[in-house]
Design a protein around this nucleic acid. Structure first.
Lengths: 118, 118
DNA sequence: TTGACAGGCAACCTTATGATTGCCTAATCG
DNA sequence: CGATTAGGCAATCATAAGGTTGCCTGTCAA
């Protein structure tokens, strides 16, 4: 799999990216440092990030150094920025156009609680 | 849960956002139109998007209209754009600073393929 | 008022996904 | 050399996530 969105979905992976943003080119064990996770877990996360093309790796002796790849992030970001600008306009226009429809009547607002609420 | 990253991780949800980008304020059934998914599935996806604050809903009679909320997207985007700009520099500097370590020696470059490549 | 329509709730199922453990290979250093 | 260190691979496990089905509530229009 290689979906950058999916790769970004996990907090641990975002944290790993954060660490690489702080210091690029770190090895696996260094990236593990201080994390409450096994080395294998981190390794898998890095593999997913690599598959999503968010990081690149280079072997250096027995170490594997990890480097950020800004390109796909930039792609995502540009795509959603475009959307964002568009929708900001749309949302604005839409809100203005609509006569708020402020609740046709206000009688049966209360609904039985779904038993799983708190 | 309300993690916008996780909300964006699913292709179906991104598609729903696309549809709302194309036409804001659509109802549930309208959003279902043409999708190979049950109404309940779509409903769940919309709930996740709403929990992540990526869309807002307004009841209008028996319909529920869905509106994009650009703010959290913008937040994400800004955060990662900042990172992106930073890392572009870092990556550049890093590449230049390193005397590429071009393979300490060039013998064992070929590695057995991991069976899952392609 | 009755039936069609929009939507919600809950139970259930299947498969991803995140994580662990145990063992193996390959560099590095004393 | 032998011990240590960096990392990989495979099996295994528990839970989350996406999806479905069945049934219920509320709104609208003829």
């Amino acid at each position: 799999m290689s979906d950058p969105f999916r790769a970004l979905a996990d907090e641990s992976r975002r944290l790993l990216l954060d660490r690489l943003f702080a210091e690029n080119g770190q090895s696996l064990v260094k990236l593990c440092d201080g994390l409450a996770m096994s080395r294998q877990a981190v390794s898998k996360h890095l593999a997913i990030l690599e598959a999503a093309n968010l990081i690149a790796v280079r072997k250096s002796g027995r170490e594997k150094r990890h480097y950020l790849n800004p390109v796909p992030l930039a792609k995502i970001v540009r795509r959603w920025i475009g959307k964002f600008e568009d929708v900001r306009l749309v949302a604005l226009l839409d809100t203005e156009a609509k006569p708020p429809i402020k609740r046709p009547s206000a009688p049966s607002r209360r609904r039985r609680l779904p038993a799983s609420v708190r």
